[in-house]
Design a protein around this nucleic acid. Structure first.
Lengths: 189, 189
DNA sequence: ACCTGAACACCGTTCAAGT
DNA sequence: ACCTGAACACCGTTCAAGT
Protein backbone atom coordinates (compact mmCIF):
# COMPACT_ATOMS: atom_id res chain seq x y z
CA UNK A 1 0.00 0.00 0.00
CA UNK A 2 1.73 3.07 -1.26
CA UNK A 3 1.17 6.18 0.80
CA UNK A 4 -0.81 8.76 -1.13
CA UNK A 5 1.12 11.93 -0.65
CA UNK A 6 -0.66 15.15 -0.04
CA UNK A 7 -4.25 13.94 -0.06
CA UNK A 8 -6.07 15.05 3.02
CA UNK A 9 -9.17 13.85 4.81
CA UNK A 10 -11.53 15.65 2.41
CA UNK A 11 -9.94 13.80 -0.49
CA UNK A 12 -8.66 16.86 -2.27
CA UNK A 13 -5.13 17.99 -2.99
CA UNK A 14 -3.75 20.53 -0.54
CA UNK A 15 -3.54 24.14 -1.56
CA UNK A 16 -0.50 25.46 -3.34
CA UNK A 17 0.63 28.96 -4.19
CA UNK A 18 0.07 28.18 -7.87
CA UNK A 19 -3.54 27.08 -7.36
CA UNK A 20 -4.20 30.11 -5.19
CA UNK A 21 -2.78 32.58 -7.73
CA UNK A 22 -4.67 30.87 -10.56
CA UNK A 23 -7.96 31.10 -8.72
CA UNK A 24 -7.31 34.71 -7.79
CA UNK A 25 -6.54 35.61 -11.39
CA UNK A 26 -9.76 33.94 -12.51
CA UNK A 27 -11.73 36.06 -10.06
CA UNK A 28 -9.99 39.28 -11.14
CA UNK A 29 -10.45 38.52 -14.83
CA UNK A 30 -14.08 37.52 -14.42
CA UNK A 31 -15.38 39.89 -11.78
CA UNK A 32 -12.80 42.62 -11.34
CA UNK A 33 -10.12 43.43 -8.80
CA UNK A 34 -12.56 44.92 -6.31
CA UNK A 35 -14.29 41.56 -5.91
CA UNK A 36 -11.11 39.69 -5.08
CA UNK A 37 -11.51 39.09 -1.35
CA UNK A 38 -9.87 36.48 0.78
CA UNK A 39 -13.24 34.96 1.62
CA UNK A 40 -14.34 34.73 -2.00
CA UNK A 41 -10.97 33.29 -2.93
CA UNK A 42 -11.44 30.71 -0.20
CA UNK A 43 -14.85 29.81 -1.63
CA UNK A 44 -13.36 29.37 -5.11
CA UNK A 45 -10.77 27.00 -3.66
CA UNK A 46 -13.38 25.21 -1.53
CA UNK A 47 -11.56 26.12 1.62
CA UNK A 48 -11.98 28.53 4.50
CA UNK A 49 -10.36 31.89 3.77
CA UNK A 50 -8.01 31.46 6.70
CA UNK A 51 -6.37 28.43 5.10
CA UNK A 52 -4.83 30.72 2.50
CA UNK A 53 -2.69 32.37 5.16
CA UNK A 54 -0.89 29.12 5.70
CA UNK A 55 0.52 29.37 2.17
CA UNK A 56 0.77 33.15 1.93
CA UNK A 57 1.88 34.34 5.36
CA UNK A 58 1.95 37.96 4.22
CA UNK A 59 -1.71 37.63 3.34
CA UNK A 60 -3.37 39.72 0.69
CA UNK A 61 -0.26 41.80 0.04
CA UNK A 62 1.58 38.66 -0.98
CA UNK A 63 -1.37 37.55 -3.09
CA UNK A 64 -1.38 40.81 -5.06
CA UNK A 65 2.39 40.66 -5.50
CA UNK A 66 1.94 37.15 -6.86
CA UNK A 67 -0.61 38.36 -9.40
CA UNK A 68 1.75 41.06 -10.65
CA UNK A 69 4.62 38.60 -10.92
CA UNK A 70 2.40 36.19 -12.85
CA UNK A 71 1.13 38.75 -15.34
CA UNK A 72 3.95 41.26 -15.75
CA UNK A 73 6.91 38.90 -15.94
CA UNK A 74 7.25 38.34 -19.66
CA UNK A 75 10.81 38.92 -20.79
CA UNK A 76 11.62 38.96 -24.47
CA UNK A 77 13.27 35.74 -25.50
CA UNK A 78 16.82 35.79 -26.86
CA UNK A 79 17.06 36.47 -30.57
CA UNK A 80 19.07 34.34 -32.98
CA UNK A 81 19.83 37.13 -35.40
CA UNK A 82 20.86 40.16 -33.37
CA UNK A 83 20.28 42.44 -36.32
CA UNK A 84 16.55 41.69 -36.26
CA UNK A 85 16.13 43.42 -32.90
CA UNK A 86 13.50 45.80 -34.19
CA UNK A 87 11.23 42.95 -35.26
CA UNK A 88 11.95 41.10 -32.02
CA UNK A 89 10.95 44.09 -29.91
CA UNK A 90 7.84 44.65 -31.99
CA UNK A 91 6.79 41.04 -31.46
CA UNK A 92 7.48 41.26 -27.74
CA UNK A 93 5.46 44.47 -27.47
CA UNK A 94 2.46 42.86 -29.14
CA UNK A 95 2.64 39.91 -26.79
CA UNK A 96 3.01 42.06 -23.70
CA UNK A 97 0.09 44.27 -24.69
CA UNK A 98 -2.10 41.22 -25.19
CA UNK A 99 -1.10 39.85 -21.80
CA UNK A 100 -2.01 43.13 -20.10
CA UNK A 101 -5.31 43.30 -21.97
CA UNK A 102 -6.23 39.75 -20.99
CA UNK A 103 -5.62 40.56 -17.35
CA UNK A 104 -6.65 44.18 -17.39
CA UNK A 105 -7.78 43.95 -13.78
CA UNK A 106 -4.21 43.63 -12.53
CA UNK A 107 -2.96 46.66 -14.44
CA UNK A 108 -3.50 48.98 -11.46
CA UNK A 109 -1.41 46.58 -9.40
CA UNK A 110 1.38 46.53 -11.97
CA UNK A 111 1.45 50.28 -11.71
CA UNK A 112 1.26 50.39 -7.91
CA UNK A 113 3.17 47.62 -6.18
CA UNK A 114 6.66 48.60 -5.16
CA UNK A 115 9.79 47.14 -6.63
CA UNK A 116 8.76 43.72 -7.85
CA UNK A 117 11.20 41.78 -9.93
CA UNK A 118 8.66 41.44 -12.72
CA UNK A 119 9.40 44.70 -14.49
CA UNK A 120 13.10 44.64 -13.66
CA UNK A 121 13.67 41.33 -15.41
CA UNK A 122 11.44 42.32 -18.29
CA UNK A 123 13.23 45.61 -18.90
CA UNK A 124 16.60 43.84 -18.61
CA UNK A 125 15.61 41.44 -21.39
CA UNK A 126 14.73 44.34 -23.66
CA UNK A 127 18.02 46.08 -22.97
CA UNK A 128 19.89 42.88 -23.74
CA UNK A 129 18.24 42.54 -27.15
CA UNK A 130 19.15 46.13 -27.98
CA UNK A 131 22.70 45.66 -26.77
CA UNK A 132 23.18 42.57 -28.93
CA UNK A 133 21.76 44.51 -31.84
CA UNK A 134 24.66 46.88 -31.53
CA UNK A 135 22.83 49.74 -29.86
CA UNK A 136 25.14 51.64 -27.48
CA UNK A 137 24.70 50.76 -23.81
CA UNK A 138 23.28 54.12 -22.68
CA UNK A 139 20.80 54.31 -25.55
CA UNK A 140 19.78 50.69 -24.99
CA UNK A 141 19.01 51.32 -21.32
CA UNK A 142 16.92 54.39 -22.07
CA UNK A 143 15.13 52.76 -25.00
CA UNK A 144 14.23 49.69 -22.93
CA UNK A 145 12.52 51.85 -20.29
CA UNK A 146 10.87 53.94 -22.96
CA UNK A 147 9.45 50.90 -24.69
CA UNK A 148 8.14 49.23 -21.53
CA UNK A 149 6.72 52.55 -20.33
CA UNK A 150 5.00 53.11 -23.64
CA UNK A 151 3.48 49.63 -23.78
CA UNK A 152 2.13 49.84 -20.22
CA UNK A 153 0.90 53.42 -20.55
CA UNK A 154 -0.72 53.05 -23.94
CA UNK A 155 -2.40 49.80 -22.92
CA UNK A 156 -3.69 51.57 -19.82
CA UNK A 157 -5.26 54.23 -22.05
CA UNK A 158 -6.76 51.52 -24.21
CA UNK A 159 -8.17 49.52 -21.31
CA UNK A 160 -9.78 52.58 -19.82
CA UNK A 161 -11.40 52.87 -23.19
CA UNK A 162 -11.56 56.53 -24.00
CA UNK A 163 -13.54 55.13 -26.85
CA UNK A 164 -13.70 58.29 -28.81
CA UNK A 165 -11.16 60.73 -29.82
CA UNK A 166 -12.39 64.07 -28.62
CA UNK A 167 -13.39 64.45 -32.24
CA UNK A 168 -16.11 61.81 -32.10
CA UNK A 169 -14.24 59.35 -34.21
CA UNK A 170 -13.90 55.79 -32.93
CA UNK A 171 -10.33 54.86 -32.10
CA UNK A 172 -8.70 51.91 -33.82
CA UNK A 173 -6.62 50.88 -30.84
CA UNK A 174 -4.46 48.16 -32.40
CA UNK A 175 -3.54 50.54 -35.21
CA UNK A 176 -2.80 53.27 -32.69
CA UNK A 177 -0.61 50.92 -30.73
CA UNK A 178 1.36 49.95 -33.84
CA UNK A 179 1.77 53.56 -34.93
CA UNK A 180 3.11 54.56 -31.53
CA UNK A 181 5.35 51.54 -31.42
CA UNK A 182 6.88 52.51 -34.74
CA UNK A 183 7.34 56.05 -33.45
CA UNK A 184 9.25 54.76 -30.45
CA UNK A 185 11.35 52.25 -32.37
CA UNK A 186 12.08 54.47 -35.35
CA UNK A 187 14.52 56.80 -33.64
CA UNK A 188 16.42 54.13 -31.68
CA UNK A 189 19.85 53.48 -33.12
CA UNK B 1 -27.43 92.80 9.91
CA UNK B 2 -26.25 90.99 6.84
CA UNK B 3 -27.10 87.35 6.71
CA UNK B 4 -24.02 85.18 6.91
CA UNK B 5 -24.51 82.72 4.15
CA UNK B 6 -23.61 79.11 4.63
CA UNK B 7 -22.45 79.16 8.22
CA UNK B 8 -24.11 76.46 10.25
CA UNK B 9 -24.69 75.96 13.95
CA UNK B 10 -21.15 74.69 14.55
CA UNK B 11 -19.77 77.91 13.12
CA UNK B 12 -17.94 76.29 10.24
CA UNK B 13 -18.55 76.56 6.53
CA UNK B 14 -20.57 73.71 5.03
CA UNK B 15 -18.80 71.05 3.07
CA UNK B 16 -18.21 71.44 -0.62
CA UNK B 17 -17.00 69.06 -3.28
CA UNK B 18 -13.80 71.08 -3.56
CA UNK B 19 -12.99 70.85 0.15
CA UNK B 20 -13.78 67.14 0.13
CA UNK B 21 -11.52 66.43 -2.86
CA UNK B 22 -8.74 68.55 -1.37
CA UNK B 23 -8.86 66.72 1.94
CA UNK B 24 -8.95 63.36 0.17
CA UNK B 25 -5.93 64.26 -1.94
CA UNK B 26 -4.06 65.29 1.20
CA UNK B 27 -4.75 61.90 2.76
CA UNK B 28 -3.69 60.02 -0.37
CA UNK B 29 -0.51 62.06 -0.76
CA UNK B 30 0.41 61.78 2.90
CA UNK B 31 -0.68 58.27 3.83
CA UNK B 32 -1.40 56.43 0.63
CA UNK B 33 -4.51 55.42 -1.26
CA UNK B 34 -5.22 52.44 0.97
CA UNK B 35 -5.74 54.72 3.96
CA UNK B 36 -8.34 56.87 2.21
CA UNK B 37 -11.55 55.77 3.90
CA UNK B 38 -14.79 57.61 4.19
CA UNK B 39 -14.49 57.68 7.98
CA UNK B 40 -10.96 59.07 7.95
CA UNK B 41 -11.99 61.61 5.35
CA UNK B 42 -14.85 62.62 7.61
CA UNK B 43 -12.41 63.07 10.50
CA UNK B 44 -10.16 65.28 8.37
CA UNK B 45 -13.16 67.44 7.52
CA UNK B 46 -14.38 67.40 11.14
CA UNK B 47 -17.61 65.83 10.12
CA UNK B 48 -19.26 62.44 10.36
CA UNK B 49 -18.41 60.24 7.37
CA UNK B 50 -22.05 60.07 6.40
CA UNK B 51 -22.19 63.82 5.76
CA UNK B 52 -19.99 63.30 2.70
CA UNK B 53 -22.74 61.36 0.95
CA UNK B 54 -24.85 64.46 0.91
CA UNK B 55 -22.34 66.07 -1.47
CA UNK B 56 -21.22 62.95 -3.30
CA UNK B 57 -24.33 60.81 -3.72
CA UNK B 58 -22.37 58.15 -5.61
CA UNK B 59 -20.13 57.79 -2.58
CA UNK B 60 -16.59 56.60 -2.78
CA UNK B 61 -16.79 55.92 -6.52
CA UNK B 62 -17.53 59.57 -7.11
CA UNK B 63 -14.76 60.58 -4.73
CA UNK B 64 -12.18 58.55 -6.65
CA UNK B 65 -13.43 59.89 -9.97
CA UNK B 66 -13.01 63.37 -8.56
CA UNK B 67 -9.41 62.67 -7.60
CA UNK B 68 -8.60 61.48 -11.12
CA UNK B 69 -10.25 64.52 -12.65
CA UNK B 70 -8.31 66.81 -10.33
CA UNK B 71 -4.91 65.23 -11.01
CA UNK B 72 -5.07 63.98 -14.58
CA UNK B 73 -6.81 66.93 -16.24
CA UNK B 74 -3.89 69.04 -17.41
CA UNK B 75 -4.25 69.96 -21.05
CA UNK B 76 -1.40 71.65 -22.86
CA UNK B 77 -2.08 75.36 -23.28
CA UNK B 78 -2.41 76.84 -26.75
CA UNK B 79 0.88 77.81 -28.33
CA UNK B 80 1.52 81.18 -29.92
CA UNK B 81 4.06 79.96 -32.42
CA UNK B 82 2.69 76.79 -33.94
CA UNK B 83 6.09 75.83 -35.25
CA UNK B 84 7.41 75.44 -31.69
CA UNK B 85 5.15 72.46 -31.06
CA UNK B 86 8.04 70.18 -30.12
CA UNK B 87 9.14 72.47 -27.31
CA UNK B 88 5.55 72.97 -26.22
CA UNK B 89 4.96 69.22 -25.97
CA UNK B 90 8.23 68.73 -24.13
CA UNK B 91 7.24 71.38 -21.58
CA UNK B 92 3.78 69.85 -21.18
CA UNK B 93 5.28 66.39 -20.66
CA UNK B 94 7.56 67.66 -17.90
CA UNK B 95 4.66 69.33 -16.14
CA UNK B 96 2.41 66.29 -16.45
CA UNK B 97 5.10 63.98 -15.13
CA UNK B 98 5.63 66.23 -12.12
CA UNK B 99 1.91 66.31 -11.44
CA UNK B 100 1.71 62.53 -11.49
CA UNK B 101 4.79 62.21 -9.26
CA UNK B 102 3.37 64.66 -6.71
CA UNK B 103 0.18 62.64 -6.50
CA UNK B 104 1.64 59.22 -7.10
CA UNK B 105 -1.06 57.64 -4.98
CA UNK B 106 -3.74 58.38 -7.55
CA UNK B 107 -1.80 56.86 -10.44
CA UNK B 108 -3.50 53.48 -10.04
CA UNK B 109 -6.82 55.30 -10.25
CA UNK B 110 -5.80 57.17 -13.38
CA UNK B 111 -5.04 53.80 -14.91
CA UNK B 112 -8.20 52.10 -13.68
CA UNK B 113 -11.27 54.31 -13.69
CA UNK B 114 -13.38 54.02 -16.79
CA UNK B 115 -13.82 56.73 -19.33
CA UNK B 116 -13.26 59.94 -17.41
CA UNK B 117 -13.02 63.14 -19.34
CA UNK B 118 -9.60 63.89 -17.82
CA UNK B 119 -7.53 61.97 -20.33
CA UNK B 120 -9.82 62.70 -23.25
CA UNK B 121 -9.46 66.45 -22.92
CA UNK B 122 -5.75 66.15 -22.24
CA UNK B 123 -5.11 64.03 -25.32
CA UNK B 124 -7.25 66.36 -27.40
CA UNK B 125 -5.08 69.32 -26.40
CA UNK B 126 -1.96 67.47 -27.49
CA UNK B 127 -3.48 66.59 -30.84
CA UNK B 128 -4.49 70.20 -31.38
CA UNK B 129 -0.93 71.42 -30.82
CA UNK B 130 0.37 68.89 -33.32
CA UNK B 131 -2.31 69.80 -35.85
CA UNK B 132 -1.49 73.47 -35.61
CA UNK B 133 2.16 72.59 -36.02
CA UNK B 134 1.31 71.20 -39.43
CA UNK B 135 1.42 67.51 -38.53
CA UNK B 136 -1.09 65.53 -40.60
CA UNK B 137 -4.32 64.66 -38.79
CA UNK B 138 -3.77 60.90 -38.60
CA UNK B 139 -0.20 61.23 -37.37
CA UNK B 140 -1.24 63.86 -34.84
CA UNK B 141 -3.90 61.60 -33.36
CA UNK B 142 -1.54 58.68 -33.03
CA UNK B 143 1.32 60.80 -31.67
CA UNK B 144 -0.93 62.37 -29.04
CA UNK B 145 -1.90 58.96 -27.67
CA UNK B 146 1.67 57.77 -27.88
CA UNK B 147 2.95 60.74 -25.92
CA UNK B 148 0.33 60.55 -23.17
CA UNK B 149 0.78 56.78 -22.94
CA UNK B 150 4.53 57.18 -22.68
CA UNK B 151 4.34 59.84 -19.97
CA UNK B 152 1.91 57.84 -17.85
CA UNK B 153 3.70 54.53 -18.35
CA UNK B 154 7.20 55.82 -17.80
CA UNK B 155 6.13 57.74 -14.71
CA UNK B 156 4.51 54.59 -13.39
CA UNK B 157 7.80 52.75 -13.81
CA UNK B 158 9.58 55.58 -12.01
CA UNK B 159 7.11 55.74 -9.13
CA UNK B 160 7.36 52.03 -8.56
CA UNK B 161 11.04 52.72 -8.27
CA UNK B 162 12.81 49.83 -9.86
CA UNK B 163 15.72 51.70 -8.43
CA UNK B 164 18.34 49.70 -10.16
CA UNK B 165 18.77 48.67 -13.65
CA UNK B 166 19.19 44.96 -13.61
CA UNK B 167 22.86 45.81 -14.01
CA UNK B 168 23.17 47.31 -10.50
CA UNK B 169 23.52 50.85 -11.72
CA UNK B 170 21.31 53.49 -10.18
CA UNK B 171 18.81 54.94 -12.63
CA UNK B 172 18.81 58.67 -13.34
CA UNK B 173 15.07 58.91 -13.85
CA UNK B 174 14.74 62.50 -15.05
CA UNK B 175 17.45 61.84 -17.64
CA UNK B 176 15.69 58.63 -18.66
CA UNK B 177 12.44 60.46 -19.02
CA UNK B 178 14.01 63.10 -21.24
CA UNK B 179 15.78 60.53 -23.38
CA UNK B 180 12.54 58.62 -23.95
CA UNK B 181 10.67 61.83 -24.62
CA UNK B 182 13.15 62.75 -27.33
CA UNK B 183 12.82 59.27 -28.79
CA UNK B 184 9.05 59.68 -29.02
CA UNK B 185 9.14 63.22 -30.38
CA UNK B 186 12.02 62.72 -32.79
CA UNK B 187 10.14 60.66 -35.33
CA UNK B 188 6.91 62.68 -35.32
CA UNK B 189 6.51 64.79 -38.43
C1' DA C 1 1.37 20.11 8.20
C1' DC C 2 -2.78 21.82 7.00
C1' DC C 3 -7.18 23.54 7.86
C1' DT C 4 -11.29 25.34 10.75
C1' DG C 5 -14.24 28.51 13.78
C1' DA C 6 -14.80 32.21 16.48
C1' DA C 7 -13.49 36.71 17.26
C1' DC C 8 -11.69 41.66 16.53
C1' DA C 9 -11.24 45.97 14.46
C1' DC C 10 -12.42 48.03 10.61
C1' DC C 11 -14.92 49.01 6.01
C1' DG C 12 -18.89 51.39 2.69
C1' DT C 13 -23.45 52.47 2.76
C1' DT C 14 -28.74 52.85 4.27
C1' DC C 15 -31.98 54.96 6.68
C1' DA C 16 -34.55 57.50 10.02
C1' DA C 17 -33.92 61.32 12.81
C1' DG C 18 -32.37 65.78 14.29
C1' DT C 19 -31.59 71.08 13.48
C1' DA D 1 -30.39 71.95 3.45
C1' DC D 2 -27.13 69.78 5.95
C1' DC D 3 -25.54 66.72 9.26
C1' DT D 4 -25.78 62.85 12.93
C1' DG D 5 -26.29 58.05 15.09
C1' DA D 6 -27.38 53.58 14.86
C1' DA D 7 -27.39 49.70 12.13
C1' DC D 8 -26.19 46.16 8.32
C1' DA D 9 -23.42 43.38 5.56
C1' DC D 10 -19.02 42.86 4.56
C1' DC D 11 -13.72 43.20 4.97
C1' DG D 12 -8.51 41.41 6.41
C1' DT D 13 -6.35 39.19 9.93
C1' DT D 14 -5.29 36.81 14.81
C1' DC D 15 -5.44 33.11 17.46
C1' DA D 16 -6.51 28.81 19.63
C1' DA D 17 -8.11 24.51 18.35
C1' DG D 18 -8.83 20.44 15.64
C1' DT D 19 -6.95 16.36 12.60
Amino acid sequence: MVRQPAINAQNRPPLSIERIIDAALRIVDGQGLARLTMRRLGDALEVEAMAIYHHLPRGKEQLLDGLVAHVATAPAGPVADGAAWRDALRAWAHGYRERLMEHAGVLPLVVTRRNPVALTTTVASLREILRRGGVPEATAAAAAHTLLGYVIGHTALEVRGTDEDGADRAVDWPARFDAGLDLVLASVS
